[in-house]
Every structure is written in C-alpha cells, then in structure tokens.
C-alpha cells in the first residue's frame, strides 16, 4: 500500500452560468498501484479527463480525497510539488505538450530543474530518453519537437515524466493522436516500463481494444461515476453492467451476441438523472427485463460493490442475490 494512488469518493463540481452545477466527477473510488496498468474507459464527456486532472492535483476536488501512499494530497504548493515527483502526466497530443522553442534536452530536463535536482543532469536526461526508447539519447538532445515524428515526440513527453522517477503515470489518451503504426510501439513501451521498472499507470482511453491489450484492470466510467470495475479479461469477456455490455457488444468477436445501440445522448453533467444515472438509456429498463428492480432503479443510486469484479447495477445485484 505504500505507493498506491487512491481516490476515495472523489467529487469535482464546476459552477455553470445560471447557478447550475456540473458534477463532472461524482463519487469515484479508484486505486492505481505500481506495477499495474489500470484502464479508465468511457464515452467522451463522461469525466475521464477531469478525473485524471484531479488525480494529478491540477483540478481541485470539491469532495472526497486523493491520496498517495496513504497521505492525502495537500493543498499547499510544497505538498503538491512533492506529490508530483511520484505521479506524472502524459498528455494526449505530444505536439502540443512540448514547447516548440525548447529542445528535447530542455523539455526532459525541465522536471529536474523545477525540482532542483542538479546532480548529473545530462546523465539523468540521457537515461530517461533511453528508457523511453530514444537511443542513442545524445542524438536527440538538441532536436526541436518539430523535427521529430509524432511517436518520437510522445517518447520525449514520456521521458520528461520518467526523469523524475515517478511510481505512477497518468496517461490521458496517450496514443489517440498517433498513427496506428506508432501506437503499438508506445503501448509496448508502457508495458515494458511496467514490467522492468514496476511503474504503475492509469491509461485513459475510449478504446476498449487498447485497454484489452495493455491493462490489468479496467474501470468503466459513466457520467462521472465508475459503473463497473475489475480485471480486464473478466470485464470485457463477461460484462455485467448494461452500459459495459453495450460498449462491448459493438466490438468484433464480442461475447455479447446482439449489438446493443444505446438510446439517446450522454446527459449533461449538470442534469444527472436521479436514481440510477444510466436508467434513461438502459436497454434492460427499455426491454422490460428490469421490471423487478425498476423501483430501485428509479429511486436509489446503485453502489459499486466491493470485490475484484464490481458492478453498480441493481439488476446485477438482484441476480447475484438470487
């Protein structure tokens, strides 16, 4: 438990014009330990990125807490700075994540300079670049981002995070803006970092195939809340929550026989439906198979059960109890 990044009942609300409040993250429990890759999947707008930003202390939680190694994340600049040596960010678009006026060396050394680590700067930078798969590192020291390919830029961003020797990486759609041919390389880099260096990672993605290929555990997020969580094989081969079933059903070789097309749009985060938040779009409710628990669906917010494979659905709970 010493270097685990945990979120407990994490809530992030934004004030909107007109006095409305958007609940972007609405009670999330999540653990990321070193040596495991956790995928966080869900539709665009479900709060994945806000959750990631909050886990990094870039967004202020309005409720609940983020903790690292059992210590709650402080609010002071000093506490945040210390925290950031342990938990690092990899952004979606590597072209934007690098200052075009900084060389690769400066970009990677930035973290060291911020944290005042001055001993053997070139050695640390070279080591981080090499671990991120840019070899020989000296060749890349003076390149500018625009002289590199997309995959190389993402490696530079990863090297910039690795140079601080973090135990957890938070990667927000790390390959979404890369060519298909480069995606595999970056993903295998993440896997290698996990196996060789015991690095933990939270990979945010909307691509379940990607989650399948790299993650150990997966958390499915819907409208600010995690609705299903468990080992990636279990969740994707035997999805329980109707929302997960719908997501999985459209994959090739899906364990769900019929493709399920969800009705309607993802509701606005300022108008989260009462009861089960998925109820208005739920195919089980629509087909009438959830009649037995419909009262609960309308009245109670389902709780994500404990256990390795946890689901937040009244129908699943009722079936398991039966």
């Amino acid at each position: 438990m010493d270097k685990v990044l945990t979120a407990r009942d994490l809530r992030v609300e934004f004030g909107l014009p007109g006095g409305r409040t958007a609940r972007a993250v609405d009670g999330v429990d999540l653990d990321v330990a070193p040596g495991e890759i956790v995928a966080l999947a869900g539709e665009s707008g479900c709060g994945k990125t806000t959750l990631a930003r909050t886990l990094l202390g870039l967004e202020r939680a309005t409720g609940g807490e983020v903790a690292f190694g059992g210590t709650p994340l402080g609010r002071s600049t000093k506490a945040l700075k210390a925290f950031r040596r342990h938990v690092q960010l990899v952004l979606q678009d590597p072209s934007g994540a690098l200052n075009p006026r900084h060389t690769v060396y400066d970009a990677v050394a930035e973290g060291l300079r911020i944290h005042g680590i001055t001993d053997d700067e070139p050695g640390r930078v070279a080591d981080a670049l090499a671990r991120a798969g840019l070899r020989p590192p000296e060749r890349f020291f003076l390149a500018y981002p625009h002289e590199l390919s997309g995959g190389q830029r993402q490696r530079v961003v990863i090297a910039g995070a690795l140079v601080l020797e973090p135990s957890i990486l938070v990667a927000d759609e790390p390959v979404a803006s890369l060519d298909a041919s480069v995606r595999g390389e970056i993903l295998s880099l993440l896997l290698r970092l996990k196996e060789d260096a015991g690095l933990g990672a939270l990979v945010i993605t909307h691509d379940l195939g990607l989650a399948w290929s790299i993650a150990d555990r997966i958390a499915i997020m819907y409208l600010g809340r995690i609705v299903e969580q468990g080992p990636v094989e279990q969740v994707l081969t035997d999805p329980q929550h109707p929302y997960t079933r719908a997501l999985v059903s459209v994959l090739p070789d899906s364990p769900v026989a019929e493709p399920i097309v969800l009705a309607g749009e993802l509701p606005d985060a300022s108008k989260i439906p009462g009861g089960c938040r998925f109820r208005p779009r739920c195919q089980e409710v629509a087909s009438g198979s959830a009649l037995a628990v419909l009262g609960q669906c309308e009245g109670e917010d389902p709780v994500l059960g404990s256990g390795a494979h946890a689901v937040a659905c009244h129908l699943v709970h009722a079936r398991m109890a039966a």
């Binding site: 950031r84 960010l89 952004l91 690098l98 930035e110 911020i114 910039g160």
Partner: peptide, 8 residues
C-alpha cells in the same frame, strides 16, 4: 499543463 503537472 505539462509544466504544471511537473510541478512548475
């Protein structure tokens, strides 16, 4: 954003 995440 990256610089802030690095602790800048």
């Amino acid at each position: 954003e990256r610089a802030r995440a690095l602790g800048a």
